[in-house]
Design a protein around this nucleic acid. Structure first.
Lengths: 256, 256
DNA sequence: CGAAATTCTTATGTATACATTGCCGCCACA
DNA sequence: TGTGGCGGCAATGTATACATAAGAATTTCG
């Protein structure tokens, strides 16, 4: 629920950056690589928030890093006040721990916590697929998703895992974005951020995603047919398999 | 007006997590009436946070109320700094809107938003029941839940709707607390707070909860048996019926 | 030598002063 | 009468000064 991107705000059109990219896509591709902090004339608090979040997600402030408020303020060349305010948000979002006399610490997820997050994440994403099946897809939307899957299959064949991962993120986040429940979307977004580092860490280690490609097809077909139960089942199957795979990769530290 | 706090004893927050660092965040005896702000020697920011949250949930700051930072600071007899920090958290939790030159506004949920929240809430609560069925219940835990249901049935017969509602909250929050997923629990807690005013508003209007009593039994039985699918199905059925009822009550403004 | 108390350091919590900037109303002009 | 610009106001954003209290270090007493 980052206040910088209000999910539903009825009249909440924040003074958008003069970049003017918002109007092209109806839905800002929710989940993807973290965007670099906007250098615009944003208030310092926002700069601090985005900048810190970016550094954390990118791993430039790795888990366990611990800094004093003053150090962060110096790092960002501003006073402690906006830094504190940004840190409150980051803490609320679960990205940092604030321990009153020991500075702030970039949160490291234990594998239990990661599992908990995965569980919630999957539950909600499955729900999104189900809702989308209920809501239905326009031809245009279907074409877009179909196109994504085609690209992914091509990426699998090359193979270009990096590109595939990116498309995969897009596919999943599109489904969530289209499902029509903004709250669901924003909660997933937050959980995504919390997992981000881990996911990117294991992405290159994954086996060729042929299974995923097939499962994605099944999900899209079920959604297209408007078969809620089937969509939920397919998506759940997909998530469970993928999460099992991911958690296994994490436990086997073959990453080094 | 029996506002007897602490319905759950000190033994209820038994998290058998292997990691010893479970003390990251206090486990606020799940879901219940909002507790009055602790007058202890808490930092001002915390006082502001709890105090405002309490007032909002209790309806003493009704939706739509709008105040300037300075006004809030005066109201709470402290400077703007801790107030701002508290407001950031409240905004992040979706309880207030902060519009840069117009002060803060206590958030009013549209019925669409409420529906969205319900959807997410139900999804997660059903998951909690499923997880709990998987994890299993100790005899002591079962006895406690069983006891709750007995009390509820008695409350239904009297009838004492107020007490029933309170027990109902306890039952549901116990299930969530026992399910073992702390993240799930905290997200549900937050969604609960967002719905709180609405729920309490319609609670007295509901018909006699005989259906709910039966459904609760079915849920508890399924959990006891360790039948995940059945537990999920029962809980989902329960939630869907209850939510439908609640949303219908809301649309018919017989409340006046 | 060890433990406890006391002082000392310093990070944080809070207040306040100051800068900034959006907003409102007023007035000139068409 | 409607519109657009301008000036003043006042609320917020930010910096900084100060109070407080948690740890750390040191010293003293057993």
């Amino acid at each position: 629920m980052a206040s910088s991107e209000k999910p539903t705000g009825p009249g909440s059109s924040r003074h958008a950056a003069p970049g003017g990219e918002a109007a092209t896509r109806s839905v800002p591709a929710a989940r993807d690589r973290p965007s670099p902090p906007p250098n615009n004339r944003l208030p310092a608090r926002e700069r601090a928030y985005h900048d810190l979040k970016y550094r954390i997600l990118e791993g430039r402030l790795p888990p366990g890093t611990s800094l004093l408020e003053t150090e962060v303020a110096n790092l960002l060349s501003m006073s402690r006040t906006p830094v504190r305010e940004a840190l409150i948000k980051l803490e609320e979002e679960g990205l940092v721990d604030v321990r009153p006399r020991h500075g702030i610490t970039v949160r490291a997820l234990s594998s239990e916590e990661l599992e908990e997050i995965c569980e919630v994440f999957s539950t909600l994403e499955v729900k999104a697929a189900q809702l989308l099946a209920r809501r239905g897809l326009s031809d245009e939307e279907y074409a877009r998703l179909d196109n994504l899957l085609n690209q992914m299959e091509r990426a699998t064949q090359k193979p270009d895992i990096d590109r595939w991962s990116q498309l995969d993120n897009t596919f999943h986040s599109e489904i969530v974005a289209l499902c029509g429940n903004a709250r669901l979307q924003s909660m997933l977004r937050q959980l995504w951020d919390q997992q981000y580092r881990v996911r990117t860490a294991i992405a290159p280690l994954r086996p060729l995603p042929v299974d995923s490609d097939k499962e994605h097809r099944a999900i899209l077909d079920a959604i297209r047919k408007g078969d809620e139960a089937e969509a939920a089942r397919c998506h759940q199957f997909h998530r469970e398999r993928a999460d099992r795979e991911a958690l296994a990769l994490l436990r086997n530290p073959r990453s080094a």
